[in-house]
Nucleic acid binder design. Structure first.
Length: 875
RNA sequence: GCGGGCGUGGCGAAAUGGUAGACGCAAGGGACUUAAACUCCCUCGGGUGCAAACCCAUGCCGGUUCGAGUCCGGCCGCCCGCACCA
């Protein structure tokens, strides 16, 4: 084989040198060929069982989990980014010697499967399992370090049967109950609609105006845990602050006064009206009482009074979302009933039914103080009710509208009845509660905004609620030996509504209690139930019980959980509750009540949108792959480019990861999604960026092959510099991965690549540095890392090689450069020994040319020396 | 409407309160090549200036500080969530 030094020698430059050189290069340096090597390494990892998690009490475990996907059928770049982040952590921890659990499964129940069945025919089961197979086939080429032996789908009867068993245990433990709650009702299709199926107050299919309707539904008693879920947030040190804040606000603890108004002129049985207020200090500014349209009093009035019935019916129009209710026009109706003011029996207030008062919060009744509440102000203005200020600002004028200062701000009470004249709102509230309690009406109470978790869904494709309705025994849980209560396969989706309801035989059963003929519950569970314990099931996915003690003891908790910020509240809060409910029913150890030790919320993958317009001026969207130089390839039309947005099918700004893998390989896709943007922020997919990522990996491979062939002798100064750079990279990449700053780890690897490329070090030093680089880049680009590792004689798999440790001696610099600022602006710099004492630095600074010039013979006012950092001369 | 977050060159970004723009993309120039591709080298926030230098600049307005992209207050814009989308 020809030696490298012959390449550029003038003696070799014969007329056919180019051709010869080409063939020599082919022979010596195989090109970067991910399509060949990636499947090879994946097969090798599989064969060696590298990623099969093993319970090994001798080793410390590490559980990495990415939020499992809904099986839509196609993976998208968001998945690639999410799972690559998890993979980086999993492979890194594996190299650090942990026994790693990194599983994957499918959040497989839910509406899209039923919608597909309605639109295209077929069965939700076939659709779902087909999608799972497709998506798995798309995920495998990405080379994730997943333990596929633990895979399951939440629609597997083996999974939902265990969920039913836990439901029964939780029912026994008093964690589940039934009550009435409102749903979106489509009066034309005669069916319950999900919030997303209500568009501008109308049903998505029928177009009918949606109504709020009450149904009896199952609830988890999450509100029993409101205080605990709130307090425990403080212990979640490795969760993003914003998520903890959002959850705290969602739980919404408040301290207030609950008291009863005496009613005047109310129907029989309604002597008093219980209200809850967080501002009892404004009681003297009350101008009306308000009740929810769903309040029992409103219902009683509705039955007897057609005007009220019409108004209440009007209030029930529209969807159930808080957003819809909060943004709707404030409507009220004077019931003619009056309440007596508790501080003055001669003072009566009108009672209104108002559409913005929620039955689910507090007591469903309030008193309004328009002077100090924006919503009450709007309402009072509209209905010409009195507006009486209770307090004023200490300084400045009283505002034209309502005056709502922070509760921590001091104000002057002009109509207070408790505490000092000048006090904060908080002090005013506390004093008012004490005063009311001592006067014998009302008491201070702590309430939460958090409502109980309604889990009933009037749909087919979900986990059946395992209860039976018996004429004699009432609602009875199914016997555990009869679980799972399986979904029937023979169902049709040709009409709206729940197919379980109209199935000819499925409902029929015998009462588990008395044995008489009975009917099954046809509601299924909210899919949030499925996703509230899958992390625990991964520890023993095939067990005959929901969990197995020794497995959950070993593997729980999840050490690192990764997913989208959109799950900040509901999924994560429900999981925190469910873990507590599982602990109470003996399915999780007490240590697992907070199941996720660390949480990371990643940003979206976005892309530009390409749009043209049709003859009618309506927008037409185009796939990125159909665009070239700002024009539609097929027609040559110029496209309008809309700035980046979340990838969505309807806007066609999607990039199929499969195309990227086909063009460049999995490592390129992985490298790209880890580079540039910080993981918590959105990342924009660009074709140029993907090509650049690919070029970089090809360059690394080329440098590696050159190094493998190199025979340059040792060169002490250069060798030391290179090894020092490599150790600096170890330090920086390690800290970046630990800190979830993958973009910075990538930047450091670019730097090390540049250093390696330019280095004049000897062959041996270069091989050492390149092998270190293979290890450092392994978590991001595992296939290329294995290639490089093997090429340079590494033993075994790089993913199993111990993570390199930076030698602290190689990280320190002997001298530091200190910028010199004059009045905060950089005007020069000096280089000094690292440990130079302050007074010597000062001497050097005062002798500096720029400083001498600026001082013009005078003395500085101040001289600030931050050792090793900066110097500031204040003149 | 309510709650939370984000905002830095042409673009993605970096920066324990301490040199604003590391690293990458795009662009421009050069080397290699018959040519191109590949690869390699150089320049690259804006402005004034022959130059040395200096000024402006982290969404906008103010404040704290020797020093603010970073901390505080107020605005503007965009994004996420709002309990039956997952």
């Amino acid at each position: 084989m020809a030696k490298r030094r012959g390449w550029s020698g003038p003696d070799r430059r014969c007329q056919c040198s180019k051709r010869a050189q080409f063939f020599r290069m082919r022979a010596k340096m195989s090109r970067y060929a991910p399509s060949e090597t990636e499947p090879k390494w994946q097969a090798a990892w599989d064969e060696a069982g590298v990623f099969t998690a093993k319970r090994d009490p001798a080793r410390e475990k590490y559980y990495v989990l990415e939020m499992f996907p809904y099986p839509s059928g196609r993976i998208h770049m968001g998945h690639v980014r999410n799972y690559t982040m998890g993979d980086v952590v999993a492979r890194y921890k594996m190299s650090c010697g942990f026994s790693v659990l990194h599983p994957m499964g499918w959040d497989a129940f839910g509406m899209p499967a039923e919608n597909a069945a309605m639109e295209k025919g077929g069965h939700p089961k076939e659709w779902t399992y087909g999608n799972i197979a497709d998506m798995k086939a798309q995920m495998r080429p990405l080379g994730f370090s997943l333990d596929w032996t633990r895979e399951f789908a939440t629609c597997d009867p083996e999974y939902y049967g265990q969920q039913q068993a836990m439901f029964i245990d939780m029912l026994d433990a008093g964690l589940v109950y039934r009550k009435n709650a409102v749903v979106n009702w489509d009066p034309v299709d005669m069916t319950v609609l999900a919030n997303e199926q209500v568009i501008d107050g109308r049903g998505w299919r029928s177009g009918a105006l949606v109504e709020r309707k009450e149904l009896t539904q199952w609830f988890f008693k999450i509100s029993d845990y409101a205080g605990e879920l709130l307090e425990a947030l403080d212990g979640l040190k490795d969760w993003p602050e914003k998520v903890r804040l959002m959850q705290a606000n969602w739980i919404g603890q408040s301290r207030g006064l609950q008291f009863a108004f005496d009613l005047v002129g109310a129907p029989e049985g309604f002597d008093t009206l219980e209200v809850y207020t967080t501002r009892p200090d404004t009681l003297m500014g009350a101008s009306f009482a308000g009740i929810s349209p769903d309040h029992p009093l409103a219902k009683a009035l509705e039955a007897a009074n057609p005007e009220i019935a019409a108004f209440v019916a009007d209030c029930r129009k529209g969807g159930t979302t808080e957003e819809a209710i909060e943004t709707a026009e404030k409507l009220g109706l004077d019931t003619g009933i009056r309440v007596k003011h508790p501080l003055d029996p001669n003072w009566e207030l009108p009672v209104y039914i108002a559409n913005f008062i929620l039955m689910d919060y507090g007591t469903g009744a309030i008193f309004g103080c328009p002077a100090h509440d924006a919503r009450d102000f709007e309402f009072a203005t509209k209905y010409a009710l009195p507006i009486t200020p209770v307090f004023e600002p200490l300084e400045g004028d009283y505002p034209a509208a309502e005056f709502v200062p922070l509760k921590s701000e001091k104000v002057r009470y002009v109509k207070g009845f408790a505490g000092g004249e000048v006090q904060t709102g908080e002090e005013g509230v506390a004093a008012a509660i004490t005063e009311c309690e001592s006067r014998g009406f009302g008491q201070g109470v702590t309430k939460y905004r958090l409502r109980d978790w309604g889990l009933s869904r009037q749909r087919y494709w979900g986990c059946p609620i395992p209860v039976v309705h018996c004429a004699a025994c009432g609602v009875v849980p199914e016997r555990k030996e009869n679980l799972p209560v399986r979904l029937p396969d023979d169902v049709s989706f040709d009409k709206p509504g729940n197919p379980l309801d109209r199935h000819p035989t499925w409902r029929d059963c015998t009462c588990p209690s008395c044995g008489a003929p009975a009917k099954r519950e046809t509601d299924t569970m909210d899919t949030f139930v499925d996703s509230s314990w899958y992390y625990a099931r991964f520890t023993s996915p095939r067990a005959e019980t929901p969990t197995v003690a020794e497995e959950v003891d070993y593997w729980m908790n999840v050490d690192q959980y990764i997913g989208g910020i959109e799950h900040a509240i509901l999924h994560l809060l429900y999981s925190r509750f469910f873990a507590r409910a599982m602990a109470k029913t003996g399915h999780l150890p007490p240590k697992a009540v907070e199941p996720f030790n660390a949480l990371f919320t990643q940003g979206m993958v976005t892309h530009e949108i390409y749009m043209t317009r049709d003859a009618n001026g309506r927008p037409v969207y185009h796939l990125p792959e159909d665009i070239e130089d700002g024009k539609v390839k097929a027609t040559g039309e110029t496209v309008e480019i809309i700035p980046s947005a979340k990838m969505s099918k309807s806007k066609k700004n999607v990039v199929d990861p499969m195309n990227i893998i086909a063009d460049f390989g999995a490592d390129t896709a992985r490298w790209f999604v880890m580079s540039d943007s910080p993981p918590e922020r959105d990342v924009e997919w660009t074709a140029a960026g993907a090509e650049a990522a690919n070029k970089h990996l090809a360059r690394v491979w080329r440098i590696a092959t050159e190094i493998a062939e190199a025979d340059a002798p040792a060169n002490p100064a250069e060798d030391d510099a290179l090894i020092k750079a490599a150790h600096k990279a170890i330090d920086e990449v390690t800290r970046s991965i630990d800190g979830f700053a993958f973009n910075k780890a990538v930047a450091k690897l670019y730097e090390l690549t540049n250093t390696l490329s330019k280095s004049k070090a000897g062959a041996e030093a270069k091989r050492v540095a390149m092998k270190l680089m293979a290890q450092l880049m392994g978590p991001m680009v595992p296939h290329l890392a294995e290639d490089v590792w093997r090429l340079l004689g590494g033993e075994g798999f790089v993913v199993q090689a111990p993570w390199p440790k930076a030698d602290p001696a190689l990280l320190v610099e002997d001298t530091v450069m200190l910028p010199i600022q004059i009045n905060g602006k950089k005007r020069g710099e000096i280089t000094v020994p690292k440990d130079m004492p302050k007074d010597e630095v000062e001497k050097l600074v005062l002798a500096d040319e720029a400083v001498v010039k600026a001082l013009a013979g005078g003395q500085p006012k101040k001289l600030i020396v931050v050792p090793g950092r900066i110097v500031n001369v204040v003149i």
